[in-house]
Design a protein around this nucleic acid. Structure first.
Lengths: 225, 225
DNA sequence: TGCGAGATCGCACACTCGTTCGTATTTTGA
DNA sequence: TCAAAATACGAACGAGTGTGCGATCTCGCA
């Protein structure tokens, strides 16, 4: 049995490819990998990717953009829940908070273990058949989402995904404004119309490349005391 | 249900994306699709891909090479989960709708039988130990509750009670105005201050005898789509 | 101290690939 | 039958993207 000896960078790269693929349905580019794991030079990413090929962990198609494939795809660790014969509740990790001034927490920020206190229970009738590993929840802090009809203390239940369909309610990071917001998403040409849920508020328009979709909003939950 | 009507080309494209993805692990480019289905122009492929997006069969990431994803091809739906022994959901009847112009439905209005479709499932962690016979749910219609941060289509989960403590969020019927509203309740002397959940809105003051408490709000649930 | 292999960096070339635009052809509906 | 809408075409632009190369850095080892 060959001993696999990966550097920290190579592990990060592998991990990133895995999550990127799951979220987007297509592999990342060399530059996207570099940005994600803090490598300035594309050639270094290329170098490490070739190392991963040598170890047999990935395959590459030469001269092909996003020409990556994971081999030996390991299943993602499951949430700590029991299976039973009837379906009722999905447990969703409450992984952080969301505010206008904060970017949405990323998976590497919280890893795959969750505090038991930070599990939100949601009836499956609400989240549907979405895989529970794609779900996460954030607590809203501050009143900055008022135009999305979301109050301080509300819990937003999201499906992690980076692209959306028109009309979806999404959590987006606006790079130019340095701002997180919840809006309805409409791609119109090469700009995006972000429409507040509150019908009395006006939409804002942003160039598509400045809109980073963090997840699609499935539900909003407010408990009063 | 909308009838999906695909042209032969669009079917071929969809089929090709599927097999290409399975063989390569990454999606095809527009030109690869064109070559496979005998389309000379990339713009025609682009055109038909957008049609598939309109039908909700694929998703596209703009300006991204191979930025395709099939929808409805998700990995197997997660197995439903549940605690082995304890009961984790309470079923609450959705007995009607609530709007500013309507009084809250009374028990005699809906009796003790409910349509099975009109049962809302709520985790017990949200409603606590409240007897399920005291619980009911209403669907908000219209935008009249915007100042309570409650949108059209939201579901309000209530405990039926006629008195409230200061700070409770309650559904009240204002007899003088002929109006139903959701507010925070504060008894101040012999008048009542009703404070909107939205901190930007001002409270209203009503004589105590004109305030008919219909129930205490336990939670508000909003599902998107 | 000196050496050499592995790892990293910056950069630029050339190909890849989504998008756009003007035009042509086919289909649709009154 | 005619005009509008839908679909198709071809070409070109420009940003996206993999690759190659020389230089620099790190670290173990003699």
């Amino acid at each position: 049995m060959e001993q696999i000896n990966l550097s920290a960078r190579q592990k990060k790269i592998l991990k990133f490819i895995e999550t990127f693929l799951k979220e987007n349905g297509y592999p990342p580019t060399i530059r996207e990998i570099g940005e994600a794991v803090d490598i300035a030079s594309t050639s270094v990413v290329n170098y490490n990717l070739n190392k991963l090929v040598e170890h047999g962990l990935i395959e590459r198609a030469p001269e092909v953009s996003r020409g990556l494939r994971l081999v030996g795809q390991e299943p993602l660790p499951e949430l700590p829940v029991q299976y039973a014969d009837s379906k009722v509740v999905t447990q969703i990790p409450l992984v952080g908070k969301i505010a206008a001034s904060l970017p949405v927490p990323q998976p590497e920020d919280f890893g795959y273990y969750y505090d038991k206190d930070d599990l939100i229970e949601v009836p499956q009738s609400i989240v549907g058949a979405v895989s529970s590993t794609d779900l996460f929840a954030l607590r809203v802090t501050g009143d900055s989402m008022i135009d999305a009809m979301v109050a301080d203390g509300d819990i937003v239940i999201l499906k992690r995904q980076n692209i959306a369909r028109n009309g979806d309610m999404v959590a987006v990071w606006l790079s130019e404004r340095g701002e997180t917001t919840l809006k309805k998403y409409y791609l119109e040409g090469n700009r995006v119309r972000l429409q507040p849920a509150n019908p009395m508020m006006d939409p804002i328009y942003v160039n598509a490349e400045q809109v980073n979709i963090q997840g699609r909003v499935l539900a909003i939950l407010r408990t009063v005391h």
